[in-house]
Simulated scan of single mutants.
Amino acid sequence: MHGSSNRPPSDHFDGRVFFDPDGVPPKSLREVWRWQFGGDRKRAVWPKWAPSPYADVPPARVEGNKARLSFVGHASWLIQTAGLNILVDPVWSERVSPFAFAGPKRHNDPGIAFDALPGIDAVLVSHGHYDHLDVVTLSRLARKFSPRVVTPLGNDLTMTKADPAIRAEAFDWHQRVELGKGVAVTLVPTRHWSARGLFDRNRSLWASFVIETGAGKIYAVGDSGYGEGKHFRDIGRTHGPLRLALLPIGAYEPRWFMKDQHMNPSDAVMALADCGAAQALAHHHGTFQLTDEAIDAPAIALGEALDEAKIPRERLVALKPGQVVEI
């Protein structure tokens, strides 16, 4: 589990745990307790089932300089380009939790049925939290497609310990990985943290991805706080121009607890301006209730934040599972 053993210290690893030099440490267990059980908690009630009106059956391949993105739900995407099929943070499980019987449960089906997936060549997993790294789904993908799984340092051990058949490869921030057919991915810093249990905080690294495609660069942000926006400006400067950004907009209430690790919609609008992407798609909302806001609050607040920033609403769109965008 501990991905940090035998690794030399760096500007984001102290010899024992990873850290973000531009970030803040995760909340203490006492603060977790205060949020979960404090008397002032206001947790919105989500409908038990909130089906998406869409379902996608992707083509076998998308060739050449086109890219097709299908929103699976929460933080899961299928990106098809140059004849490659790439999944980002794939979760087909019923729950995102260490337990099969408890924890956040789906409020809608994945936008692509598992059996409708085309041949998967590569999987990108941003970090170790259960709503992004789902070993049950990774195991199913390994059995069916045996894809390469690219992930930040330490998460490979979580995967291979659960199932040695998962072809996990771990990389550090700023490492670039060739996926073939002219497509490559670079792991980039993001403002977050990691844990699978109570006692392994930040023993594995977290990252976002810049994917180079013939259709332009796609900046796939898994989880990130906004902070001062430094990471987003750095990515725009180092990796721009960006054709498309995938930006999280959900799991943000209460702000006192969540703002350092998850953006709210107005943070995401600032992140879009900072990274300079031509177009963005929102995710991390409407499927799993991880925090206190209502199921439709992120999408509504996103529209308001875009209007306030005088950015056209079509520049940052919140999709529903099963919706598709082609570039």
Rank of each mutant, 00 (worst) to 15 (best):
G3H: 14
R7S: 04
P8V: 08
D11S: 12
V17W: 01
D20T: 12
K27L: 07
S28D: 05
E31R: 14
K42H: 14
V45A: 09
Y54S: 12
D56L: 07
V57C: 09
A60V: 14
K66Y: 02
A67E: 04
L69V: 06
S70E: 07
F71I: 00
G73P: 09
W77D: 06
L78M: 13
L78R: 07
W92T: 00
P98R: 09
P98C: 13
P98L: 06
F101G: 04
A102T: 09
P104E: 08
K105Y: 02
H107V: 09
N108E: 12
I120G: 03
Y130R: 04
D134R: 02
V135F: 02
V135G: 00
L138C: 12
K144P: 07
P147C: 11
R148A: 15
V149P: 03
V150Y: 00
V150S: 00
N155I: 14
L157W: 12
A165Q: 13
A165F: 03
I166V: 15
E169I: 04
D172H: 14
R176W: 01
R176V: 05
G180V: 01
K181N: 15
A184H: 10
A184T: 13
L187D: 02
V188R: 01
P189T: 02
T190E: 00
R196W: 04
R196P: 05
D200K: 11
R201P: 04
S208V: 09
V210F: 03
G216Y: 00
A220Q: 02
V221H: 01
G225R: 03
E228G: 02
K230C: 05
H231D: 04
H231W: 15
D234V: 06
G236Y: 01
R237T: 15
G240Y: 10
G240C: 12
L242H: 11
A245Y: 10
A251M: 08
R255D: 14
R255T: 12
M258P: 05
M263H: 08
M263R: 06
N264W: 01
S266Q: 13
A273E: 14
D274S: 01
C275W: 02
G276M: 08
G276W: 11
I295N: 03
P298D: 06
E304W: 13
E304K: 15
E314S: 13
A318C: 05
K320S: 13
P321T: 06
G322L: 10
V325S: 09
V325P: 01
E326V: 08
E326R: 08
I327A: 08
